[in-house]
Simulated assay, not measured.
Amino acid sequence: MTQNAETVQRRAPLADQAAELLLARVRAGEWALGQKLPGETTLAPQLGVGRSTVREAIRQLAGRGVLTSRQGAGVFVTSLEAREDWDSVLLRADIVSVIEARIAIESEAAALAAARRTPSDIRAIRRALSARAEQRSEIEAHVDADTAFHRTIVAAAQNPILLELFDGCTPRMRRAMIEMLRIKRVFGGDEDHHTHVELAESVVSRQAETARELSRAHLAALRGALA
């Protein structure tokens, strides 16, 4: 199995992983439109999963219009592109709503933090930034470290209402961000970390407008990635 396939397998339920890997192979032209797929006993070791997981992956892709199972004949390619199911559409809409709420809270909090941060706030921000840098391989841990970092900036705004709003949103925000990263499948890269370093330094150096814009731009980019 390739390193990319192993990475996908670590980040999502097995049937979802197998379905995405099969879909990628269909899109890559491994099987032509109307062509029959290999049997479960062939696909299972290729995907690194059991035969029951292969069957579930095929059911998922059949539901999305990519494959069709013909009794006694096998599984055939019926489309080279998957239609997006309604649950996925609703999930993305919910994530966008959470990100928009974060923009409203965090961009203003970042500007206030730049004006009001204390020496203890600076230490907390830098500790959280360092902890975030160490969590780049596992989605849940990365989201938790990222949330902790952003909370230190909201706390530095010295506005208890903003902090209360942030904390109140955290459970739903955590779920949404985990799902978003599962959709994107890429997170924790150097560019992303550099963005957070810039945000932290703008707060530390009392650049209120820069902090506001960096926070807004970062979150708007996350929203844009779901379009």
Rank of each mutant, 00 (worst) to 15 (best):
R182Q: 15
E198W: 04
D167Y: 07
P160C: 03
F149R: 00
H194E: 10
P171A: 06
M177A: 07
D167A: 09
I178E: 15
A148C: 05
R174W: 03
D190V: 11
R174F: 01
A208F: 13
E140D: 08
E201L: 09
L129A: 11
T147N: 12
E134I: 00
F187I: 05
A131P: 01
A128K: 02
M180P: 04
F187E: 05
S205K: 14
A156R: 03
V204Q: 11
R206V: 04
I139A: 08
A133V: 04
T195Y: 00
R132M: 15
H196N: 10
S130A: 15
S130W: 11
R182V: 05
Q207L: 14
N159E: 11
H142I: 01
T147I: 14
A156Q: 01
R185Y: 04
G168L: 09
Q207G: 07
R175I: 11
R151P: 03
V186K: 13
T195V: 04
E138I: 10
T170R: 12
G189C: 03
F149S: 04
G168C: 07
I178H: 06
H196E: 01
H193D: 01
M180H: 09
T152E: 03
R175S: 12
S202E: 03
A155I: 06
R136N: 09
V204F: 03
H142T: 00
M177Y: 00
A141M: 08
T170I: 09
L129P: 04
T195G: 10
A128V: 09
L162C: 07
M173R: 11
S130E: 12
Q158C: 08
R151D: 06
R151M: 07
V143Q: 09
P171L: 05
S137R: 06
Q135A: 15
V203I: 14
Q158E: 13
F166C: 01
S205A: 15
S130L: 11
R172K: 10
H142N: 13
D167E: 15
R136I: 10
R206S: 15
D144I: 10
A131V: 04
D146K: 00
H142Q: 07
A157M: 10
E179A: 14
T152F: 00
L162V: 05
C169W: 04
T195M: 05
Q158N: 12
L129G: 04
R174K: 08
E201Y: 08
S137E: 12
Q207A: 14
I153R: 06
V143R: 01
H150N: 11
A148H: 03
A128Q: 03
A128Y: 05
L165A: 11
